[in-house]
Design a protein around this nucleic acid. Structure first.
Lengths: 347, 347
DNA sequence: CTGAAAGCGCTTACAG
DNA sequence: CTGAAAGCGCTTACAG
């Protein structure tokens, strides 16, 4: 369809029942499509007069370039995927927020999807992102999905993986120094005089990726304090998981006077459970959490926790995604961000 | 480029440095592109033999249809926009989670963007969604953005707006019955014997959309209890806002024995502030929150709150988006979901 | 059961 | 400073 002279834009809109195209703008401004394209993309090569005329028509018609058509040729979609495991973990939103903002600042729009921590769902998501030709994806990997990550990168979708150890072409990583954080937390408890310290750990974390546990045992080793398997109780990284884990720990190592939790949700669950059992925090048992999610400071007692720089994690992830999309053959070096201990009342 | 006979897929991939297209599949299976398209889209009209051959080549080549090219013709992108104000409000994630899942279940992928409660940023987001030809957008409207919503719908982007009163072609709404929730909360306080009840309200909410306040005053009226402006203190819907609001309220109406808060974050802030001032909750002042965000039950005291059916809100929003994208000319009726009071220890 | 042609809305060399 | 032609990867009538 070409533009019909002598018809107002409104009438035309009604006739076409569709959106104006670059050709419509060209016809109505009396120039070629090539020229309109130049104006739209701010390329050089047209008179100021032409520019104003075209711009006016664009405004009148309410023309917007069709990005799908453009990306078919430019091979750039200006989109990233953003794959989380479960948005309802309070750990996510702040990172999500900074990822979304940083992407917008660079002209990228994000597809968001949730894997529910399931590798198969995650693979479906990767398929869909591949079909949509996103330039890269920022992903919090689902449980047991190493192979899926590698396969996806090999299929041509560059990945930025958060808090996960992996080294493969086309996969960049951004992590917080979880081991250092665990050392910090454990040392703090040791310095406070605790000699029997337990840990509430994440059940499903894979052995060679248990960085918090490594930091925990290393700090105990460095202080010359013993530890064995009975001091580590595992469960889900949730409030209920925290309740379950502290119950296990109290059974296997009733002598503990302090506990380091995998994350704040587990710490919260543990504190609630301890209170239900008539045990005072921190007097009877001290508790340190991890992540420093926003509401820990409002709990009673306010929870001492290890703070990650969530905003920077998001920004760095986007930077890496941009780098990978500009040159998929060059995999950027891993980014590791520092952590700090925030002292409050629970330990 | 057409497929070069006598070359393995791998070699070809290296040569082309690009992804295989439908034409590559056609050439390699010895059928026309039209037939491959049929197989891919499960249309009738090919022999079982052909089907298997094509499918095998698709697998070998790792072919995936380019959705951008497809949508250029079908005029369906199978994408929705999802526009939030601020993901870090704990109120969002559960709704976001159900929106994301429900969209996936129906074959839609979501673009996500955050307006930071700023109408101008929101308009930029709408522009971008329009350019990406999303079929509809689910939006938590930014402050003061009525005109932007209307203009966007008129520009051809159907909207599903959450918890906002608006009636316009191309705009569907899904809301929780906030007025009823406020009545529930206030009546509960009245039944508990409170006669002087204050409210912590949201500063920026527009007068004709203050549904929680209307419910609050209506319940007081119905009970024959007086109220005036001094009983409503306004601030931001945050923890700090809650602290500020309760301070104002204590100054303007020191005789209050109970408080109804705009949301749980304000309730949390108010409780923290009251504790800091040596005031006990609920003994000295009872507090009821709103939203029933996940962590209120872990607070001390656990907060009595009004629960919205967040999962259903998300599901209904997606249903409306699907309906609008199937027929943009027919605006579905508003969906209003019920709420319930969850009694805990703060009132 | 299968194919040749046209075209979705844009950009990319190329020519003047 | 501007334009005519080709084509990105797919689907849609249409014809056999």
């Amino acid at each position: 369809l070409t533009y019909c002279a002598g018809v107002t834009p409104n009438e035309k809109a009604i006739w076409m029942a569709g959106k104006p195209t670059l050709h419509d703008v060209a016809a109505m401004s009396g120039v070629s499509p090539r020229t309109v394209s130049r104006v739209v993309n701010d390329e050089p090569g047209f008179s100021e007069d032409t520019r104003e005329r075209v711009l006016r028509v664009i405004r009148e018609l309410g023309y917007r370039p069709n990005l799908a058509a453009r990306s078919l040729i430019t091979r750039r979609t200006k989109t990233f995927g953003f794959v989380v495991t479960d948005l309802t973990d309070p750990f996510f939103p702040e990172i999500a927020q900074s990822v979304i903002s940083a992407a917008r600042d660079r002209g990228y729009t994000l597809f968001i999807a949730a894997s529910n921590d399931d590798a198969e769902t995650q693979s479906d998501i990767f398929d869909s992102l591949l079909a949509r030709a996103v330039e890269a994806a920022i992903v919090f990997p689902a449980y047991d999905s190493y192979e899926a990550l590698v396969a996806t990168a090999d299929a041509g979708l560059p990945l930025v993986v958060v808090d996960y150890e992996i080294s493969h072409p086309g996969i960049a990583t951004v992590s917080s120094d979880l081991t250092a954080g665990a050392v910090l937390a454990t040392q703090y408890l040791i310095e406070a005089g605790h000699r029997t310290i337990g840990m509430l750990a994440y059940e499903r974390s894979q052995p060679h990726r248990r960085r918090r546990e490594h930091g925990f045992t290393r700090a105990l080793d460095d202080a010359g304090l013993g530890h064995d398997a009975s001091m580590i109780a595992r469960s889900d990284p949730t409030v209920d998981g925290g309740r379950a884990a502290i119950r296990k720990l109290l059974a296997s190592a009733p002598e503990v006077t302090a506990v380091f939790a995998y994350n704040d949700l587990m710490a919260m669950g543990a504190i609630a459970e301890l209170r239900d059992q008539g045990c005072n925090v921190p007097e009877d048992i001290a508790v340190v959490g991890f992540d420093d999610i926003p509401l820990v400071e409002l709990m009673t007692p306010a929870i001492t926790s290890v703070r990650l720089d969530r905003e920077r994690v998001g920004n760095e992830a986007v930077k890496l995604a941009v780098a990978l999309s500009n040159d998929p053959t060059r995999t950027p070096d891993p980014v590791v961000l520092g952590v700090e201990l925030v002292r409050r009342d629970s330990a």
